[in-house]
Design a protein around this nucleic acid. Structure first.
Lengths: 338, 338
DNA sequence: AAAGACTTCGAGAACGTTCTCGCTGATATA
DNA sequence: TATATCAGCGAGAACGTTCTCGAAGTCTTT
């Protein structure tokens, strides 16, 4: 249990020099003799010295921890984003510590009021789908803790934001459907109130309008993000007076749910009803027919978010900035009429 | 950039009491008057005081951080394990900080020699598939940092280990194939040298032996864990002199790779060749035909690992212990001959 | 009334670093 | 020779807590 650590003092004692000099040597400041420096480094190695981050953090007033607050990690998009975050954080010597909200606004609140959060150098957050109030973020920002939002961003908060190009991705998706000859296009969307959901909706509507296609209210359904909701939404669409001949889903999971539901009803995906998703989850290639989708730059979003945050943390002055990364249409079988 | 924090001293000054008393009040020790305690708590709330973990950590010699070292997080099993870990860690006030090895022994070494690791209160690790040398773990253990291994454990290390019941899971899987009438059963395994791979192999061999079925060398293939390897292995099996009529894959991803390859060759899964996987990845339900598999208790493994580690960290004396959690056969279409 | 026990609190050291200031001795400048 | 410059280093404070020790006051016991 009790472990004893080698400190800078031990090195100083063994070398008969002051702790100040050892500290200088470790940090390679200008005012230390290179010879003594080598001596110190050698001795440090020999004693297996590891710096104590609590001590450095205490004087420098930083923890080298950045908090990542997100709804879940058990899906392709989020786990990939985290991988990107971790990659750049690790390189710069920062730890990332995870906070999972389970997509619950209540839990999100709890987490943001958490003690430990105050000890983060900065925060990367993707808001939960049912959080409407944003006061808790305001509070954190007021406390002076840098925040970068990614993917699902809070509307009204003045903070840096990184998203994929949801509008154009959606536009391109719908245009692809239209080019394939589908005309009666439905959209199964996410919960209302989330910016990226709205942007995809706008892209959908714009593409329909530009191609002079009618949009029926009953072809637009708002619900949750999971596969189950995709199934339900698809079944609901089948009930509508005029049945759509294509579905644009807000994400791949819902698209896959819809496919599963339609397959059960013996509807031939592509031929009878075309389907397109969003994300490019590996599942797209596994399901049959394979799912056409819009690829999101998840890894890059993770990397860039973290880079932004580290800039915010280390720069004296930082501008709030927004970044939109491009998406890419990936055509597969689910939108093939042939 | 510069943020000013409310400290215990501020509270003491405003209340005209000593820092020691404030500290006592915050920790609710026995030797503090309940009235003054309430006063302190009220003032703390009022000033929005947040304890500084660097300071407490420095005197208590702990960081309340536990490191999680694992190959990747972008798959179902690992992301679920992490969710379990995070769940209990959060409850106990510990942060989890992620280290991703990308399944490379070299990177694993780098990470374990990392400075920041020395500042973890404990480690949860799942070794990378190509790591043979375990000296770096010995070193950490010698440093007195508690370690718990999960899933992929290092053979020879004396440390606590948590795994699913790979042997019986495999046995049950193969027995299920046999009961379905398959006789020529192949096993596409993981890389040799990993304990759980070997255990699944043993389960496979035992079931075959108990049912007096022959095992051909060419029906056993060792390779990587990814879908690509599953495809390759399946194609290789098709080349063998006597073609197997069923495949037991070491995990779902390989099983799915194999299915995809066989489907491309117009082989009817189930009828001509039965396939069973391991993990119960959500993809099993998505692919067609759906994939029979052995469910792993991923969430529970995450939870238990973390509980073990926290015990190790907080108990004065701890016994190294090993825990094996049960698996569960989940029958779907890929092993239906009818 | 004296002694003991208990409650409540303060002073100050300690944790392992970094940082500021100033000192020493050597070298360069006048 | 006297003075300025500079390289290299040490002493000690500071960061925000906890912890140990002891003191003051109150209450109980005899």
């Amino acid at each position: 249990m009790k472990r004893h650590f080698v400190t800078i003092k031990d090195i100083a004692r063994e070398l008969n020099i002051s702790v100040a000099t050892v500290s200088r040597a470790m940090r390679d400041t200008y005012d230390v003799n290179q010879e003594t420096r080598q001596l110190v480094l050698k001795k440090a190695q020999e004693l297996n010295y590891k710096p104590n981050f609590n001590a450095t953090g205490l004087v420098k007033n930083s923890s080298h921890n950045i908090g990542v607050v997100l709804p879940t990690i058990t899906n392709y998009y989020f786990s990939t984003v985290i991988t990107g975050i971790q990659e750049v954080a690790y390189k710069k010597g920062y730890n990332i510590v995870l906070y999972i909200t389970n997509d619950s606004a209540e839990r999100e609140m709890d987490i943001l009021n958490e003690l430990s959060l105050g000890n983060m150098d900065g925060l990367l957050v993707c808001v939960s789908s049912d959080s409407r109030q944003n006061d808790h973020f305001e509070q954190i920002i007021a406390d002076g803790i840098p925040i970068v939002f990614f993917d699902r961003v809070a509307h009204d908060i003045k903070a840096s934001k990184i998203m994929q190009d949801d509008y154009h991705g959606a536009y391109q998706a719908v245009e692809h459907l239209i080019q394939q000859g589908y005309k009666k296009i439905a959209h199964i969307a996410g919960p209302a109130g989330l910016l990226f959901t709205e942007r995809r909706m706008e892209g959908f509507l714009a593409a329909m309008k530009d191609h002079r296609l009618p949009v029926k209210k009953e072809w637009i359904i708002h619900s949750g993000f999971s596969r189950d909701f995709g199934e339900k939404d698809a079944l609901q669409l089948l009930q509508s007076r005029t049945r759509p001949d294509a579905i644009f889903a807000v994400n791949d999971r819902k698209a896959i749910g819809a496919m599963l539901a339609l397959k059960k009803k013996n509807i031939r995906i592509g031929k009878q009803i075309g389907i397109i998703g969003f994300t490019n989850d590996p599942m797209c290639e596994i399901i049959s027919p394979s799912l056409t989708t819009v690829e999101e730059p998840a890894l890059e979003i993770g990397r860039k978010s973290c880079e932004f945050l580290l800039n915010h943390i280390n720069k004296k002055h930082f501008q709030v900035q927004e970044l939109t990364l491009p998406t890419k249409l990936i055509v597969r079988e689910s939108t093939m009429r042939g």
